[in-house]
């Protein structure tokens, strides 16, 4: 087992280095840079001296390999330099928003699990009935609906329903409150984006639960359980579901990537000051240092999640290790 973990861990290194090379050099292909944009962006004449000074300050005039080394070394030591736009340390900018994004991500995952497992189970047990068709349509709709639109509709629904019930419209609070300060205010703000992202996230997991459970239900030991007269509810809950959750766990882990993508847009809708919003702003401002740092953070999280999924899988199913 340790050998497997070690091997898998080593495999991550070339991927991460490759991703770093890719993002770093490709971002350097952009014509124009942040200095031109910042100084000449307003349409005014930009002094070449000033542009040179700005580039010197940001290290843009250093040899490209030196810049690359700074980038890698900085990433490893959690000192990713300063944002080219705000001038504040990138670690600070990310740290400011990390908690919020992480919380929404975890909540969305929970929402997805709470939707996917019961629905997938019902759908499999009632295969080819109208319930099954409904659940499948519901989950395909989850993939089809853009999460930002779902967010807008949720806000709209909240406004209309609170208007109808209490006489005045209510919106989730805009100001972020830490859950340790005021849990209720925090949840009333973050539950909506979590639902909007989680529903979409649940779609694939629902279908996975359904098909995995259908497969297990055809196994011999299920027939044995039925033959000895066990109650159907026990067969499903105790015997079938447990064995079918393995691929579901994998899918939930892998879909984490979708979740991060989903956050980029949902944070925009709900006006949450999270990592996704920061990422979009960095792209809009051509803030390379920030963009490359954020891409690396996302890629690292993604690669690491995949690693964890693989380890979980090997731990749950010992056959994998020898493959």
């Amino acid at each position: 087992m340790f050998q497997y973990i070690f091997k898998r861990l080593l495999l991550m290194i070339p991927t991460l280095i490759g991703a770093a090379i890719l993002i770093f050099f490709v971002l350097r292909l952009i014509p124009g840079d942040v200095c031109e944009l910042r100084l000449a962006g307003s349409g005014l004449y930009a002094d070449p001296e000033q542009i040179k000074l700005c580039r010197d300050n940001l290290g843009l005039n250093d040899p490209i390999l030196v810049q690359f080394w700074d980038f890698i070394f900085g990433f490893l030591t959690f000192d990713m330099g300063e944002s080219m736009w705000t001038g504040r340390a990138i670690t600070y900018e990310i740290g400011l928003r990390f908690q919020l994004s992480l919380q929404v991500a975890v909540m969305a995952t929970l929402v997805a699990i709470f939707i996917a497992i019961p629905l997938g189970t019902i759908s499999a047990v009632k295969q080819n009935t109208w319930i099954d068709y409904f659940v499948r349509a519901f989950s395909i709709a989850g993939i089809a609906m853009p999460s930002f639109w779902l967010g807008i509709i949720i806000i709209l629904g909240l406004l209309i329903s609170t208007q109808a019930m209490f006489g005045e419209p209510w919106m989730p609070p805009i100001q972020y409150v830490s859950p340790f300060e005021d849990l209720w205010a925090n949840l009333s703000q973050l539950i909506w984006p979590a639902v909007a992202t989680g529903y979409r996230y649940s779609a694939v997991a629902t279908r996975m639960t359904r098909s995995a459970l259908l497969e297990v239900l055809r196994e011999d030991y299920i027939r044995t359980a039925r033959a000895k007269g066990l109650v159907e509810k026990l067969i499903i809950n105790r015997h079938a579901l447990k064995n079918s959750l393995l691929p579901v766990v994998t899918v939930i882990g892998i879909e984490f990537a979708f979740l991060m993508g989903g956050l980029v847009v949902t944070e925009q809708v709900f006006n949450l000051n999270g990592l996704g919003k920061l990422f979009v702003e960095s792209v809009l401002n051509q803030d390379f240092t920030l963009t490359q740092a954020l891409v690396m953070v996302v890629v690292t999280v993604f690669v690491f999640t995949n690693f964890l999924v693989d380890i979980c899988y090997a731990w749950l199913d010992p056959r994998i290790r020898y493959a």
Partner: peptide, 22 residues
């Protein structure tokens, strides 16, 4: 395969946004 692995390490929309940045 290794190169494809690197590309696959970028979630879809993150990669798309990075390309838009360029």
């Amino acid at each position: 395969q290794r190169v494809m692995d690197i590309f696959m390490a970028f979630p879809l929309i993150i990669m798309a946004l990075a390309v838009v940045a360029i």
